[in-house]
Design a binder for these strands. Structure first.
Lengths: 159, 159
DNA sequence: CGAGCGGGTTGCGATTTGCAACCAACCTCG
DNA sequence: CGAGGTTGGTTGCAAATCGCAACCCGCTCG
C-alpha cells in the first residue's frame, strides 16, 4: 500500500482498492455471464489457478462473491455474486459499452438487451429532479469535506 | 500478453487491455476532475513519476488523452481527455457510485451533481424502446458471433 | 487398485512496481 | 553572472507480483 496517497478520499479509489485489477474485473465479468466454477473460470479466462484462487478469496472476503456448495461427496462449490457484487453491473456495462464504441470494428461482439423485448440497452446519467438525461459536460463533482468543486469536464476546450 | 485468452471476444476485455490497471483508472479520474499537469498528478495520486510517464504515454497513443502545450518558453504541457477519453465518464461514475454505496460509511466523500440544479445524479440502464429503467436481473447478454445467450444475472438463486 | 477429475496449494523464474537519484530546460533573484 | 528553484521527465535497482508447471487431496468410476 502506498504510504497514504493524497486524494484517497474518493470512492473511485476505494473501489479500485478492492476490484481494481485486470483479473478481478474479468472474473466478475465472467460471474455476471454465468460462469461460476473454478475450472470454468480458468478455462475461459486463461488465468493461472493460483491467481484465480487469490482473487476469489479476496472477493469472498469483501462480500462481493459467495462460495456456495452445489453438491457434497465430493464437496464442490460454485462462486456467485452477492447483491453487493451484482451491484457492480452498471460499472461493467459502462466499460463494455466503451469498448464497443471504440474498439469493436463494426458490430460489437456482445450486446446487452432488454430481456422483455430484445432491444439493445443504453445507459444514462440522470437528474432525478429535472427528470432529464445529463451529458458529461453538465456534471459537477462536489466534495463533501473540502470545497474543491470543479466541473467534471472543464468546457474550456469544447468545440 | 497471455497466448490468446479464450473469452477475449468481449469488449470488456478490449477495454481492460487499454485502461485496466489501477493507476490508469486513477489518472483518468483525476483528469476528469480537472487535474491536468504532470506534477499535479504526481502530487495528487502519489504515483511514481516513471509510472505516470508510462501511463500517460499509453493513453496518448490510444487517443484517450492529448498532450496540449499551454505555454512555450519553457514548453509546458497539460494532459486533456479527448472525446474518446471523456466517453469513459459513465464507467468512472459507475465505479464511484459503487464505492459510495458500499464503502463510504455515511456520506460519500464526493458526489456528482447536475450543474444546473445541484441535485445528486443517478445512473440507469434503459431500454430505448420500452422507455423504462431496466434492473440488472432483466438484462441479457447476447453474443453476436456464437449464440451463447444467458441472462446476465441468472435468477435461479433469487429470493 | 489405479486413473481421472474438480479444486485447489506450492515453488520458482520472469515481469512489473515503487522509490530515489539524476538530468535538462528554463526562470528568477541577488 | 551564477546559485538555486521549478517542471517534466529518465535511469537503476530492490521488492512485490505474475505466470507456469508441478504437486496434492478427496472422491468416483472401471
Amino acid at each position: 500500500m502506498p504510504p497514504t496517497p493524497p486524494s484517497a478520499a474518493c470512492s473511485i479509489n476505494a473501489t479500485l482498492e478492492v476490484i481494481g485489477d485486470r483479473w478481478t474485473l474479468l472474473v466478475l465479468r465472467d460471474l455476471f455471464r454465468g460462469v461460476r466454477r473454478f475450472s470454468e473460470l480458468v478455462d475461459d479466462l486463461g488465468i493461472a489457478k493460483n491467481l484465480l484462487s487469490d482473487r476469489l478469496k479476496r472477493l469472498v472476503e469483501e462480500g462481493i462473491v459467495e462460495k456456495v456448495p452445489y453438491q457434497d461427496r465430493p464437496a464442490r462449490f460454485e462462486y456467485r455474486l452477492t447483491p453487493k457484487g451484482a451491484d457492480l453491473s452498471p460499472a461493467l456495462i459502462a466499460l463494455m459499452r466503451w469498448g464497443d464504441e471504440w474498439y469493436a470494428d463494426g458490430n460489437p461482439p456482445v450486446v446487452l438487451v432488454h430481456e422483455a423485448c430484445g432491444t439493445p440497452l443504453e445507459q444514462h446519467v440522470q437528474c432525478p429532479r429535472c427528470c432529464e438525461t445529463v451529458s458529461p459536460g453538465k456534471v459537477r463533482s462536489q466534495s463533501q469535506q473540502q470545497s474543491a468543486d470543479r466541473a467534471i469536464n472543464d468546457p474550456r476546450e469544447e468545440r
